[in-house]
Amino acid sequence: MQGLVWGGTALSAIGLAGLMVCILRVLRARRAKLDDDAMRAEMRKVVPLNMGALFLSVIGLMLVIVGIILG
């Protein structure tokens, strides 16, 4: 069951890194003072990455919990 815990931890860490990338991309766009259309376009690009990162984090945390319960 340790494999589940460590695998879940790795997935959560990858998801957390993805969330940080999303934050950095949005901060860069805000600092660039883009117009409304350009900002919306950048946000449209970031949303799928954000959702994927959140998905990985949640799945990873679920694997950690299952590994702890079964372990």
Rank of each mutant, 00 (worst) to 15 (best):
M1G: 08
M1Q: 10
M1F: 10
M1E: 00
Q2W: 10
Q2Y: 08
G3V: 13
G3R: 14
G3Q: 13
L4N: 11
L4F: 09
L4E: 12
V5Y: 07
V5E: 06
W6D: 14
G7Y: 10
G7V: 05
G7D: 09
G7F: 04
G8A: 03
T9P: 00
A10C: 10
A10S: 08
L11S: 05
L11E: 10
L11Y: 06
S12N: 12
S12T: 13
I14C: 11
I14G: 11
G15S: 05
G15E: 06
G15P: 02
L16Y: 12
L16I: 14
L16G: 13
L16M: 15
A17L: 11
A17I: 04
A17E: 03
A17P: 04
A17N: 05
G18I: 04
G18P: 07
G18Q: 05
L19C: 10
M20K: 12
M20L: 14
M20W: 12
V21P: 07
C22P: 04
C22F: 01
C22G: 04
I23R: 13
I23F: 15
I23T: 15
I23Q: 14
L24G: 14
R25V: 09
V26L: 12
L27S: 09
L27M: 11
L27E: 13
L27D: 07
L27G: 01
L27A: 10
R28W: 06
R28A: 11
R28I: 03
A29K: 06
R30P: 05
R30M: 10
R30C: 07
R30K: 10
R30E: 11
R31F: 06
R31C: 05
A32C: 02
A32F: 03
K33W: 10
K33C: 06
L34P: 13
L34E: 05
D35R: 06
D35S: 01
D36S: 13
D36E: 14
D36K: 05
D37W: 09
A38P: 02
A38T: 00
A38S: 09
M39E: 03
M39L: 15
M39G: 03
M39P: 02
R40E: 15
R40Y: 09
R40H: 12
R40N: 11
R40P: 00
R40W: 09
R40A: 14
A41M: 01
E42M: 04
E42G: 01
E42N: 02
M43L: 15
R44E: 15
R44V: 04
K45H: 09
K45F: 01
V46T: 04
V46A: 04
V47Q: 07
V47C: 01
V47R: 08
P48S: 01
L49F: 08
N50Q: 15
N50V: 12
N50S: 15
N50R: 14
M51I: 13
M51V: 15
G52I: 02
G52Q: 04
A53F: 05
L54T: 14
L54Q: 14
L54R: 13
F55S: 15
F55P: 07
L56N: 02
L56I: 03
L56R: 02
S57F: 14
V58K: 08
V58E: 03
V58C: 10
I59G: 05
I59A: 12
G60S: 00
G60P: 07
M62D: 07
L63A: 13
V64G: 00
V64Y: 03
V64F: 03
V64C: 08
I65S: 11
V66R: 08
G67R: 02
G67V: 06
I68M: 14
I68L: 13
G71L: 01
G71W: 00
